[in-house]
Amino acid sequence: MIEINNLHKHFKGNYVLKGVGFEVGKGETVAIIGPSGSGKSTLLRCINLLETPSDGEIKLDELTIHAHHITKEMLLKVRRSTGMVFQNYNLFANKTAIENIAEALITVKKKTRSDAMAEAEVLLNKVGLQNRAKHYPSGLSGGEQQRVAIARALALNPKVILFDEPTSALDPELVQEVLQVIRKVAKEHVTMIIVTHELEFARDVADKVIFMDDGRIIEQNSAVEFFKNPKEERTKKFLEKFTQQSMYYI
C-alpha cells in the first residue's frame, strides 16, 4: 500500500508539484496522464527520492518518509523498495543484459554472482530475452533494452515499480512488445505507477487513472469511469485532444 500526502516540489522557486496526494492499493496499477510539463516525471522521481521533495509525506507500507527528515538509510531503503523504468532505458552500458539485471542483486542484496545470475536468468526469460543474455545494451533494440530495464526493476522485488513514459522513446513498431511485457507484469499483481501517453493502454491495464495538470491532480477515478465519464473540464479537453489526434492517425 502506497500513500502520497500533500507532496510539494519546487526547483529554486519554480513550483512543479503543488500538493499532490493519492493512494495505490497492493497489486494495483495506476496510470498517470497529463500534458507536458505538468510534473508527472517529477512526481515519480520524488517517490523514489531521485529528487528530494520540498514538503509532504510518502508511505510505502510501514515505511513513512517526511520530506524534511530524510536520512541516508531511509533514502537507500526507499530506493531498494521501489523500481524505476526510465524513458531512455538507462541500462548500464558496461554490463550485459543479464548483468544489468543481476547488478542490484549482487551489490544491494549481497548475493553471490552465480546466485544473482541464476535469478537474473529467470527474469530475462520472463521478458522473453533469454537469447540476449550476453548482449551489451549497444547490441539490443530499444524495445529489448526497455524489456531488460523492466527485468532490472523487478529484480529486487520492489513494493512498487515506477514507469516514466516507458514507450515514448521507442520506434512505433517496438511499442507493443514493451506494453505486452508490462501487461504481463500487471497480471502478476505487481504494484505499478505508470506515466504514459498511451491512453488506449492506460484504459486497458490500469485499475485507476490520475490526470495531472500544472503540478496538481485534477481528477482521479477508476479507469473505466475516468474514460467514460470524465468530470472536470480540463480532463475532457485533454481526452478530446488525444482522441482527435488518434483519429488523424487512422
Binding site: 521501489t82 551489490t107 530495464a149
Partner: peptide
C-alpha cells in the same frame, strides 16, 4: 545510468 544505479538502491 547514474540515476538508474541509484534507483536500484546502489
Amino acid at each position: 545510468q547514474i540515476e538508474a544505479s541509484y534507483s536500484v538502491g546502489m
